[in-house]
Design a protein around this nucleic acid. Structure first.
Length: 815
RNA sequence: GCCCGGGUGGCGGAACGGCAGACGCGCCGGUUUCAAAAACCGGUGAGGGCAACCUCAUGCGGGUUCGAUCCCCGCCCCGGGCACCA
């Protein structure tokens, strides 16, 4: 009856086949066979991967393993768990690869998906593979297009001539979010500003709700902070200044400091500001001013708006009138003013804004104090920096003497009553540039008709299929490759039947990923993106884990789409995700970011071949705190392999006549508690440490009780599911271990009956006393004072007091 | 500049304001082996002491507390995000 040695190859293959054959992880929804309405649902979501040619990276499984453990734990707690997987398969890298090799992106995608699927299956994740989705599948993108049509119908999709971030290398327009440090997020290529008619989505209309609704959801605080920061809400006022020399022209500004309005001594506008066209004609030095504005516009925007760039202003020869006090102030064109924030015009208050202060000093402009500190006055002539702190209004007419924090609202209200301003909120967040001039994306389902303008395709014509092309090369004009396919482009207007041209821009990669979690609920539905029933049952996602890098992109976009779908009655919850967490990056063994260029990439396939999927999964969880970046260590992985070997050997010690040991029982119950709690709290590393402690303790026994080992296997199963299935079977259990109930925790059994209480003297550890757990305080103190070493430190001294923390420690304070 | 994290043995990391260093890696010693690797068992913060024990130690400097890795104040370093945003 010699037991075989632990062979992860055999064990893992066996159980992966079993799970697949038996549909162990299929999650029945309402209406499906085997659906049990009495079970609580739990929707676990990981970010579906982009199937790149490089294959799975050791970073991907960190998130997948963690949530797989959560999913398995929840199932054992009796939940109906949905843990789906799919492919975010449209996108530039595939298209660029296709361009280079001449292989169609569809073929490249199929190949990459097959590879990813193989790699994921080897790791034994409990995905419901029957719900697999792929954003490039016409049956999927039909609904991406459908959502776009709805956005268009409701006026949230519009076409605008906007300056876009043009990546000179990808030859594609990018959203602000895709420009990182002035270069393309994807390829690192140079990004320039270019004007182009683009489809835009009005995410800014949801800005307020995107901030406010964070209050009701369980997102990591840093994620909330980053989203709020990104949306960049500023509360202030719009103030209208009238042009002095040109009647009927107004220049509105946005300011967060209406309390400083009486201190305005100049105004600047962006060189692109349209008001210049009305003000400049006939002004002295018109030609020079125009030339200066052109020079400012010619500078690359990222450089122009760099804080280190020298601020340049040119007097326009015109003035504007301060509506608060009638002051005539000079109007400048300045390089630091930008057209796409606020109104493109800024009021200059040098006394109370450091940037304005420096500008005023440079150009010899007046400095006028309107707020002084509570305890002293300010002399404009002697100021060396702007005074930006709170204070009391001065030189502000009827508001003099009012604290500036109060004056803000009062001045705004006063302006409003005189028709010269109103409260206003602006956002840093811009509308979402939704057009891409590329092939491998969802076609935008509209046509351009000479007579009817932009016309949406009727819903019945969806999906609008991406046509096959021979060449994916972007055109020299920057148009999408689709523009070259005449047979596709030339079509009939659905409204008037006349000649029309199809839209040739495609959607960005963020489109398909903005709603994929809905499609999982009902992936084959041909009538709707998902059935009402499925949406009502499964939504919202209970726990969504992903990378911090998606906080301001995918996460914000998908919340926006979801709110829109909620508003039009398609989905039933205002927020898609109840809880959002994020994992830390896996770094190379040298502690640097893993990359091909650094030569420190670890291939998961190789690791699984050497140590097995269970050991690999264990290491991914054990390596460190889940939310922190951690360097990879193949030695560490080997340690997990050794642990599994010890577990395997432990099974050989299982005997029916093993005695009950009180302390083993206690440790077991403590472990049941800790592992469960730690999974909920994402402290996977300490959950495993506890399991190792228990395994080590069991290993000390010559014989291990069946009951004890059974429960140990159950506790291990969310993390190392293959070996757990095998041992479960060996113990006589029917598969699958994943359908067994989570072991019951008994607080009484976990309780120690003797406790060791550390004794401190003046806060320093001097001894320990072992007492029954239910000892009276007086007895414990007495024992503590009687300890030999404690006596060494208390002898001849006066005991001032004795601090006793029940069950924790005694501290004797002496003098 | 602003907003988040983080700094603990040789390394990854543990510690409701209460025994600093759980667990793992590495290292050292042992068992096994002709030998090595692997595996298994034991030891392992630094310094002192024959030992019992003692001293020091959680980036730096203060503070609160009977007691601080943890809370407060002021710094230094590392990582991430935002940044002429009016």
């Amino acid at each position: 009856m010699a037991r075989p040695e632990y062979s992860f190859e055999a064990v893992e293959k066996k159980w992966q086949d079993y799970w697949e054959r038996s549909g162990t992880f299929r999650a029945p929804g309402p209406g499906d066979r085997g659906f049990d309405p009495s079970k609580r649902k739990f929707y676990v979501l990981i970010e579906f991967p982009y199937p790149s040619g490089a294959g799975l990276h050791v970073g991907h499984p960190r998130s997948y393993t963690a949530l797989d453990s959560v999913a398995r734990h929840k199932r054992m707690q009796g939940c109906n768990v949905l843990y789906p997987i799919g492919w975010d398969a449209f996108g530039l890298p595939t298209e660029n690869f296709a361009l280079k090799t001449g292989t169609h992106p569809r073929i490249v995608t199929e190949r990459n998906v097959a590879n990813f699927r193989r790699q994921l299956k080897r790791l034994g994740f409990s995905f419901d593979w029957s719900r697999e989705v792929n954003t490039t599948d016409p049956a999927y993108y039909k609904w991406t297009q459908w959502i776009f049509l709805k956005l268009l119908e409701k006026g949230l999709a519009y076409k605008a001539e906007v300056p876009i971030n043009w990546c000179t290398s990808c030859k594609v327009g990018l959203a602000n979010e895709e420009v990182v440090g002035g270069v393309c997020e994807r390829c690192g290529g140079q990004v320039v500003r270019r004007m182009r008619k683009q489809w835009m989505l009005a995410i800014t209309r949801y800005a307020e709700r995107l901030i406010d609704d964070l209050a009701g959801i369980d997102f990591l605080e840093k994620i909330k902070a980053q989203q709020i920061n990104w949306i960049g809400r500023s509360v202030g006022a719009r103030v209208v200044f009238r042009a002095a020399e040109v009647p009927g022209v107004e220049v509105p500004v946005f300011t967060t400091r209406p309390d400083t309005l009486f201190g305005v001594t100049f105004m600047v506008v962006a060189p692109e500001h349209p008001v210049l066209e009305r003000l400049l004609p006939g002004s002295p030095g018109e030609a020079e001013v125009r030339a200066a504005a052109e020079r400012m516009k010619a500078v690359d925007i990222t450089e122009r708006t760099n804080p280190d760039t020298e601020k340049i202003g040119v007097f326009t020869g015109r003035h504007v009138v301060n509506p608060a006090n009638g002051d005539l102030v000079p109007l400048y064109v300045a390089n630091y003013a930008v057209m796409d924030y606020g109104t493109g015009a800024v009021m200059g208050v040098p006394a109370h804004d450091q940037r304005d202060f420096l500008f005023a000093r440079k150009y010899g402009l007046a400095v006028k104090v309107v707020i002084r500190p509570a305890d002293r006055g300010l002399d404009a002539a002697k100021m060396e920096a702007a005074y930006e702190e709170p204070g009391v209004q001065v030189n502000s007419g009827q508001f003099d003497g009012t604290p500036n924090t109060e004056a803000m609202g009062q001045i705004t209200a006063w302006l409003e009553s005189r028709g010269a301003g109103k409260p206003e909120v602006t956002y840093h967040l811009r509308d979402w540039v939704f057009s891409r001039q590329r092939y491998w994306g969802e076609p935008i389902p509209v046509v351009h008709c000479a007579k009817c303008g932009v016309v949406a395709l009727p819903e019945r014509e969806l999906p609008l299929l991406l046509p096959d092309v021979e060449r994916f090369q972007t055109t020299e004009t920057g148009e999408s490759p689709l523009a070259l396919i005449d047979a596709w482009v030339n079509t009939k207007c659905p409204k008037c039947g006349g000649a029309a041209r199809r839209e040739t821009d495609t959607m960005p990669q963020w489109a398909g990923s903005s709603w994929y979690f809905l499609r999982y609920l009902d992936p084959d539905n041909a009538e709707a993106l998902a059935s009402r029933q499925a949406l009502e049952y499964w939504m919202p996602v209970d726990w969504y884990n992903g990378g911090m890098e998606h906080t301001t992109l995918h996460l914000l976009y998908s919340r926006f789409w979801h709110k829109f779908l909620f508003d039009i009655g398609v989905v039933t919850t205002p927020e898609p995700y109840k809880k959002r967490t994020s994992h830390g990056m896996v770094l190379g063994e040298n502690g640097e970011k893993m990359s091909k260029a650094r030569g420190n990439v670890v291939n998961p396939d190789e690791m699984v071949e050497r140590f097995g999927a269970d050991a690999f999964r264990l290491y991914e969880m054990f390596m460190g705190a889940f939310d922190q970046a951690i360097p990879w260590s193949t030695e560490g992985l080997n340690g997990m392999y050794r642990f599994l070997n010890r577990v395997w050997e432990l099974a050989a010690k299982v005997a029916p006549d093993a005695p009950v040991k009180k302390d083993v029982e206690r440790l077991l119950h403590q472990t049941i508690k800790k592992v469960g709690d730690d999974i909920e709290a994402m402290k996977f590393n300490t959950a495993l440490a506890q399991l190792m402690t228990l395994a080590n303790r069991l290993g000390q026994e010559p014989k291990v009780r069946v009951e004890d080992f059974r429960r140990f296997v159950l506790l291990l199963s969310p993390f190392a599911p293959h070996i757990a299935e095998e041992l479960w079977e060996e113990l006589g259990g029917a598969p699958s271990v994943s359908t067994q109930p989570w072991p019951a925790y008994d607080a009484a059994a976990a309780k120690e009956d003797e406790i060791e209480v550390p004794v401190q003297v003046n806060g320093k550890l001097r001894g320990k006393v072992t007492v029954p757990a239910d000892s009276a305080e007086a007895f414990i103190k007495e024992q503590a004072l009687a300890d030999a070493n404690v006596k060494n430190f208390t002898e001849g001294k006066q005991v001032v007091k004795i601090v006793y923390v029940p069950g924790r420690l005694v501290n004797v304070v002496v003098k």
